[in-house]
Nucleic acid binder design. Structure first.
Lengths: 310, 310
DNA sequence: CTTTGGAAG
DNA sequence: CTTCGAAAG
């Protein structure tokens, strides 16, 4: 097989695709293009009916908690000062957590989930300023709950679910598993939603539509943009949920939350929107804003922040 | 087994053994002691009969060539400017060598040996200003020659052998193999010595006598100071070779070439003399000096340099 | 404590 | 490209 042929197995985020289509018009295609960056507008702190925001939630795939702490990720969190911070891909056993985070007084209530098999793989966390009514781990299915991917916290007005959805992987070797996950996870969320509206946040490992990644054409066969994964997300929305960012900014392109470390993708804004706040439709009246904090560094993902007026 | 009991498996190079015995006399043993450092005296550049040195050889266990290059190891080599530089523990396949070293014009003649099985394990190199008459790899025994441990170069007046001797390892799990190695390596050197006198340099992974490491008492059961390894070195000398440093400085203690990265051993000079220039007795009249360059940084070993007047 | 390749992303 | 644990020292 030729080198070019093999390329379909990895994400198409290279040099040639750095410039957006518009910028290429009438150009030789060789000179450097100014990357189109998405500038997160000022936070809107009221809901549609004018109620003031009183709940701020941040989600960040940190790609290794220990490295991220060293890169001053916690300083950014302190500055952002959300009521809840949800972290994905902590890659850290609870006993190996740095004291900087386990002793953080701003968040007295801390919850950790890690992979039971592979150390340093997957893992999510939720840190809260106020204590949840209840906290549970996983989605209630043995086959999915050994990799530390989901924490659910119950608050008076909503469930908060943070998730690190399984990556379909190079060569899509785990796409079949991902499809099973998507079905079961959706069932889990639908059940929760019957009890109380919910907020789902985290790295959902899918770019939903073409607008949600820089290179839709080249990535149709790649993990994160297969038809199966996109359909999974569509089905989630059809089950009564909304993509809060897309709800508020239906036509906003170049708004990504992940850039591969390879090929200087971030500096060229060759990225993907993989991180979401997905809300039960019942929470839509409470939605104030859904932000992409793409200037925050420390991971290959950037944080996202949600404002609710409960 | 208790934690204390387990401690016999690893080298005793800790805090408690930092201070040399003399310094402890009449002290509580708690206050910090000034470490006794060995200061390498100025190089002597003539042999016993007054002939000027004309061959300079340096040997350095670099503990990972690529990291060592990044830490400016090559700058030190350029400054030292030996006729031959021998490197051990390169941990680098030939195809992965940094251009900084493969293109180094000071040494037009470069020879590499790497582990055939495990990538990034073991490996030695020899870089020469003048071309050797012949270069061979290994010691002519299949069972020993798959780990890239020996290069032999023939020069007009001597063979130069550089070696990275197998570590007996934690728990001495490889001590049996080491004993076999010692026998076969000694036979190899004896055979060579029949043809032409030789210089053996490298990490011989043994501290010969108590004077050759900071904590002889605690390390009798540890790799590098077992009776078996020490006897192996004694037998090598009995086969007609001399430890050039010890020959010139019979009573010099605190002269080490290796300090574990653990427990700040180097700053306390808690070390071992593991790197040697061993000479055929016939070369003794040519010996000018045998140096320990313990200010050179970039590895857990320091370089050593030999001056000969051929 | 530090290096390396390997899995994973 | 970067994270991590593993093996090795």
């Amino acid at each position: 097989m030729s080198k070019r042929g093999k390329k379909t197995e990895v994400a198409v985020d290279g040099e040639n695709e750095a410039a957006p289509p518009e910028a290429k018009k009438g150009k030789k295609g060789k000179e450097p293009e100014a990357p189109i960056l998405y500038e997160d507008p000022p936070d809107k702190l009221t809901s549609k009916d004018g109620t003031a925001a009183n709940m701020k939630i941040t989600s960040w795939n940190v790609d290794g908690l220990r490295a991220w702490v060293k890169k001053k990720g916690l300083d950014w969190v302190r500055e952002e000062s959300p009521d809840v911070i949800c972290l994905q891909e902590t890659k850290c056993a609870e006993k190996a957590l740095p004291a900087e985070i386990t002793s953080m007084p701003e968040f007295p209530h801390k919850y950790w989930a890690g992979s039971e098999e592979k150390e340093g793989y997957s893992g999510v966390a939720m840190l809260c300023k106020t204590e949840p009514l209840d906290v549970t781990y996983g989605i209630g299915k043995e086959e999915h709950d050994k990799e530390g991917r989901v924490i659910t916290a119950e608050f008076p007005d909503f469930f908060l679910v943070t998730a690190y959805v399984p990556n379909a992987s190079r060569g899509l070797v785990r796409l079949d598993y991902r499809k099973t996950w998507d079905v079961d996870f959706r069932a889990y969320l639908s059940d929760l939603d019957k009890r109380k509206p919910l907020v789902l946040c985290g790295d959902l490992n899918v770019a939903h539509q073409e607008i949600d990644l820089k290179n839709p054409k080249g990535n149709r066969k790649n993990a994160g943009f297969t038809q199966e994964e996109r359909d999974g997300f569509t089905q989630l929305l059809e089950a009564g949920f909304v993509d809060s960012f897309r709800e508020l900014y239906p036509d906003q392109g170049y708004a990504y939350t992940f850039w591969t470390y390879m090929m200087n993708s971030r500096s060229k804004n060759v990225g993907w929107r993989l991180d979401y706040f997905v809300l039960s439709k019942a929470l839509l009246p409470k939605l104030c804003d859904s932000k992409i904090r793409n200037t925050a560094m420390g991971s290959d993902h950037c944080p996202i922040t949600l404002h609710l007026a409960l």
